[in-house]
Structure formats: C-alpha cells, structure tokens
C-alpha cells in the first residue's frame, strides 16, 4: 500500500518536472530539471527493486550528463528562442503515437505478475546458477560480468568509439577560436 503511494507521488513529480522542461526557455533551468528528472527516476528504480540501476542512473544520468550539458550551454547559448510555430501538429503526432503504444500494452501481463513470460525464462536460471556457478551474492553483478560478459564488452566498445568521436569533433576548437580572434584583431 505504502509502496503504491510512494510510486504515485514520484510519478506526479516526474510528470511535473517534464512539463516544466517543456515550458522553460532558460537552458540552465532545463539542464538542472533534467538532472532532477534523473534523480527522481533513480528513486523509482529503488522502489522497483533495481538498486544497481538506481545508483548508475544517479551517477551517470544526474551527474555526468548534467555536467556535459552545462559545458555545452557554456560553449553555445544560455537561452532558447521563444517558440514561434504552433504546438498543434506535434501534439497530434504525440497523441497518436501514445495511443498506439497504449494499445500495445493491452496484451501485456499485469504489473508484478510472477507468472509473466519474462519471469519464467532465463531469469530464474541466472538466479539459481549465480549461487553455484559464480558465488557472488549480487546476481546483477554475476550476470553483467559473467553470463552476459560479451554485452558488457560491446558496451565498452561503444563508449570507446563515442569517446573518439567526441575527441575528433572537438579537437582544434580552442585553436580555431584563437585564429578567429587574431583575424578580427588584424
């Protein structure tokens, strides 16, 4: 009962944060609110028993991504232009997409159903095998590093590629800025 109550309050706060992000024009406020959104979603992950996901989301979503976005608005612009076009067509698009997604959920098993198909396959095998095969108390750790180690290897490759991409895109930024200023001075 208390869990449902907490979930409803968290949901209300998430929706309010998202609506505030839609309305605010100051990019600093938008970035801060997106950090708030990440922290609230981390709280929701705790109530959904996903503690590992919760602290990753708090560290990565609320921490690193907020810092990166603050760096970006420091290098670009602090405010957005007032929205000139009407929001009517996007609203229709969003409403139709949402209705299609809601239609898709009608066939899904109820929330928390222990006999849902997702609960019957591999998950129980990992839970049982983690004790005998791997001997690590945290099942998420044993799946991440052992049963699905190749996924994690692929993830590392993606992060490495993205890091190289960012370096290539941003290298020479300071040099080009200096050259521009020298041209203007001359």
């Amino acid at each position: 009962m208390i869990e449902t109550f907490i979930n409803i309050i968290l949901f209300a706060m998430l929706v309010l944060t998202a609506l505030a992000i839609v309305r605010i024009d100051q990019l600093f406020g938008v970035v801060m609110l997106s950090g708030v959104f990440s922290l609230l979603s981390a709280l929701l992950f705790v109530t959904l028993d996903a503690v590992d996901v919760a602290f990753t989301e708090a560290a990565v979503g609320a921490g690193i991504s907020t810092v990166l976005m603050l760096g970006t608005i420091a290098l670009t612009a602090r405010t957005q232009k007032k929205a000139t076009r009407s929001g009517f067509v996007p609203f229709i698009v969003v409403a139709v997409t949402g209705a299609a997604l809601v239609y898709g959920t009608l066939d899904m098993p109820s929330f928390g159903d222990p006999n849902a198909p997702a609960q019957l396959h591999v998950g129980p095998e990992y839970l049982a095998g983690s004790i005998t095969d791997i001997d690590v108390p945290n099942v998420v750790t044993s799946i991440l590093a052992s049963y699905r180690g190749y996924d994690t290897l692929g993830e590392t490759a993606v992060v490495f590629t993205a890091g190289i991409g960012v370096l290539v895109l941003l290298s020479g930024l300071a040099r080009r800025r200096r050259e521009d200023e020298e041209e203007e001075d001359a």
Partner: peptide
C-alpha cells in the same frame, strides 16, 4: 528478475555515450 536490470545498466552507459556525442555535434 535481474536480467532487465543488467540490460538497462548497459543501456544507461551507452545512452550517456550517445548524448555526449550529440552535445559535441551541437558545439
């Protein structure tokens, strides 16, 4: 079920990688 947790852990980290690439493109 621990399996969705593992998949989403991977997705969060990949998500921050793509976000940083997008921000670099914006700059």
């Amino acid at each position: 079920n621990p399996l969705p947790h593992v998949l989403i852990l991977t997705a969060i980290v990949v998500g921050i990688a793509t976000t940083s690439l997008a921000l670099a493109l914006i700059i």
